[in-house]
């Protein structure tokens, strides 16, 4: 198992390297990075100064070295708009994003898992088709539109919920629903297919042959096994939620990382945009590694195989 984890960690490092290379490369290939690094409306002298300050007049590989050097020191640059380090900004917004993602995740699991189980137990019948339709709708509705319609109904017409901002639990309801909607569909699909896999297995057949009540077969023998991939995906999705919440956070003015990214775009605050993308990518790469390790420790079969 030690070798397996070492190899995974190696891949992970390689991925991080490729990630930094991708971002570095794209910024430079698409034009003069100085144009992105200066504040809007800067003069030609300012641009020249930036060129020198960031070493943009030096060879590419030196530039990359400098880029990585600052990254290793946790320095993602300074936000033009807030005049504070990007890393600090990121960390100050992260709790809000995590809270939103956690509530959205709970919502998506509460909806996705039972409906997935229902669909798998009634495969090919009414509830299965209804679930399939629901999943397709979940995947076909842009989350920001769901958010806008929610505001229209619950804030503008019914006046039940605040339309934007943070502070009370009520503020969380609509953004969490809008964000969780898509993931509820994804979790339902996975629960269904995972349950179908398990229900077709020999040990479920044996459980039925033992004369166990069907409810016990589903609840004890199928559910626990079927849940493993769903929980794994949910773990990865939690991190993805933090990173794709940008539209939902924009719609509801939720002060999270997504909102920070949106501000970075609208204020042309390039260090913020680059920092959010870099940290988001790194977060996902690391979570994937964590999941691999967890799998290896939980599932004895992987432990033995590798």
């Amino acid at each position: 198992m030690g070798r397996y984890i070492t190899r995974r960690a190696g891949y992970c490092l390689l991925s991080l390297f490729l990630l930094s290379l991708t971002i570095f490369f794209f910024v430079r290939v698409t034009g003069d990075p100085a144009a992105l690094l200066v504040e809007p409306g800067a003069s030609a002298e300012d641009i020249a100064a930036i060129h020198h300050q960031f070493g943009l007049d030096r060879p590419l590989w030196v530039q990359y070295g400098l880029f990585m050097w600052t990254l290793f020191h946790g320095d993602l640059g300074q936000s033009f708009y807030y005049q504070t380090p990007v890393f600090d900004l990121y960390m100050s917004r992260l709790p809000n994003s995590l809270m939103l993602a956690a509530v959205a995740m709970i919502f998506s699991l509460i909806v996705g898992i039972p409906s997935g189980i229902l669909a798998s137990v009634r495969v090919g019948r009414f509830w299965d088709s209804a679930g399939k339709m629901f999943a397709l709708l979940g995947l076909s509705l842009p989350s920001f539109w769901v958010g806008l319609v929610l505001i229209l109904v619950f804030s503008v017409y019914l006046k039940w919920l605040p339309s934007s901002g943070a502070g009370t639990p009520l503020h969380l309801l609509m953004p969490a629903f809008a964000l969780g909607w898509y993931f509820a569909a994804a979790h339902m699909r996975l629960t269904r297919s995972s349950m179908l896999d398990v229900l077709g297995s020999e040990y479920i057949k044996l459980a039925r042959l033992k004369g166990l009540p069907e409810a016990l077969v589903i609840a004890k023998h199928a559910f626990k096994n079927a849940l493993i991939p769903v929980i794994t995906l949910a773990g990865i999705n939690l991190v993805i939620m933090v990173n794709v919440a940008v539209v939902v956070e924009t719609v509801f003015a939720w002060p999270g990382i997504g909102r920070l990214l949106y501000e970075g775009i609208t204020f042309r605050d390039f260090p913020v945009v680059q920092g959010v993308v870099l940290l988001g990518g790194a977060m996902i790469v690391l979570v994937n590694l964590l999941v691999d390790i967890l799998y290896a420790t939980i599932d004895p079969r992987i432990r033995l195989e590798r």
Binding site: E202, Y203, K205, L206, R208, L209, H221
Partner: peptide, 20 residues
């Protein structure tokens, strides 16, 4: 089922639930 008539399946590897 399981009480008066019981059955043993083909594949012993797959017919036991790995989690119990």
């Amino acid at each position: 089922r399981g009480k008066r008539i019981a059955m043993v399946l083909q594949d012993p590897m797959a017919s036991l639930n790995p989690l119990f």
